[in-house]
Amino acid sequence: MSTEYPPFRLGKPRYDQSTFEGRLRHFFDVIDPRTLFTSKEKLQSCIKLLDDFDKGRIPPTVSDRELWEAQKIKQAIIHPDTGEKIFMPFRMSGFVPFGSPMVVGLLLPNQTIATTVFWQWINQSHNACVNYSNRNATSPTPMSRFLLGYTGAVTTAVSIAVSLNVLIKKANKFSPATKLLIQKFVPFPAVACASTCNLLLMRNSELTTGIEIEDHNGNVIGKSQVAARKALTETAITRMLMPAPILVIPPLIMSMLEKTVLLKRYPRVHLPIHATIVTACFGLALPVAIAIFPQYSKISTSSLEPEIQKLTSEKTLIYNKGL
C-alpha cells in the first residue's frame, strides 16, 4: 500500500477498510501512543483546522498530511459523541502503555491466590473503563448494564484463574517445573472468557432490539436481529483471540530465556526483559486482532428479516459490528 496521503475525507479512515492491511494500518494509528503527549494548544489547533475544513475555510497551503494528522489526534483524544476529552489511561492510544503493567502482573511467576485475584481484578477494571470511555454514546447506556458487564467479567476471570491454579497445584502427575510452566498460561483462558462474558452482558440487548443497518449511501434501513447476531459473533471471536498472543507468546519466550546464562547469572533483569516482551506483543497483537473483521461489515440482504428485505432493493447492506 502506498505511504502517500490520499485526499482528505473528514470523518473517514485514511486507509482502505475493505482489506486486512488497510484495517491493520488504521488501528496502528488508533493505538499510536504518541498522541498521548499532545499539548492542549496542539489539540485546539487540530480541532480548529478540521472545523475550518468542514466550513470550507482552509487556505490552499494546508496539505492532506496535516489534515489527516489533525484528525488522527482529535479522534485519539476527543470522544466522537460527547465531544469531551477521554481520560488518558482509558484512551485506545493509552491501552498498551497503561495496560502492559497489568499484563506483566498477570504473568508473574509463583502467583498466590491473593495476587491472582488482584491482577485479574485490576486488569478487568482497566478493560471495563476503556470499554465505557470509548462506548457508543449516541444513545444512553444504563450504568446498571455497565456494572453488570464489569461484575460478570471480574467474576469470570477470577473464578477461572483461581480454579485452574488450584487444580494445577493439586495435580500429582506433574512435576513442580511442569506445574510452574502450566501456571504461566492460566491468565489466557481467564482473560479470554472474561472479555467475552463482558461483551455478551453489555450488548445482549442488541439480540432482541437488533442493530441499525444502512445502505451504501449511509441511509438507515432499519434494525436487524440477524445482523446483531453476526456482529456479536465476530466481536466475540475478536475478544477471545486478542489475549492469545499477549498472554501466550511471552511465557513461551521467557521459558526459553530462563534457561540462558544471562538470566541465570543476572536474575534481576528478568522483570524488565519480561515487561519489554509483553509490551511488544501487546502493541502488535492488539491491532492485528481488531483488524480481523471490518468494523463496518457487509451482509447479504436476502439473509435478513423479510420486513427488512421489503425496504430496499440493494443486494447487500452495511452494519457496524463495534469493537
Rank of each mutant, 00 (worst) to 15 (best):
Ser2Met: 04
Tyr5Arg: 03
Arg9Tyr: 02
Tyr15Met: 03
Thr19Cys: 09
Glu21Met: 10
Glu21Ala: 12
Leu24Lys: 04
Asp32Lys: 07
Thr35Phe: 08
Leu36Arg: 01
Lys42Thr: 12
Lys48Arg: 11
Thr61Arg: 15
Val62Thr: 12
Lys72Cys: 07
Ile73Thr: 13
Lys74Ala: 11
Lys85Asp: 04
Phe87Cys: 08
Val104Asp: 05
Pro109Met: 00
Gln111Met: 03
Thr115Leu: 04
Phe118Ile: 00
Phe118Pro: 13
Ile122Thr: 08
Asn123Ser: 10
Ser133Pro: 06
Asn134Ile: 02
Asn134Val: 01
Asn136His: 04
Pro140Trp: 06
Thr141Val: 09
Leu147Met: 10
Leu147Pro: 06
Gly152Ile: 01
Ala157Met: 04
Val158Trp: 12
Leu164Pro: 14
Asn165Arg: 06
Thr178Ser: 14
Phe188Leu: 03
Phe188Met: 03
Ala192Asn: 15
Ala192Met: 07
Thr196Val: 14
Asn198Glu: 11
Arg203Thr: 02
Arg203Leu: 07
Glu206Arg: 05
Thr208Ser: 11
Ile213Glu: 06
Ala227Lys: 07
Arg229Cys: 08
Leu241Thr: 06
Pro250Ile: 01
Leu252Gln: 01
Met256Glu: 02
Leu262Ile: 08
Arg268Pro: 00
Pro272Gly: 04
Ala275Arg: 00
Thr276Leu: 14
Ala280Glu: 11
Ser302Asn: 12
Glu305Thr: 03
Glu307Phe: 15
Lys315Gln: 11
Asn320Leu: 13
Leu323Phe: 15
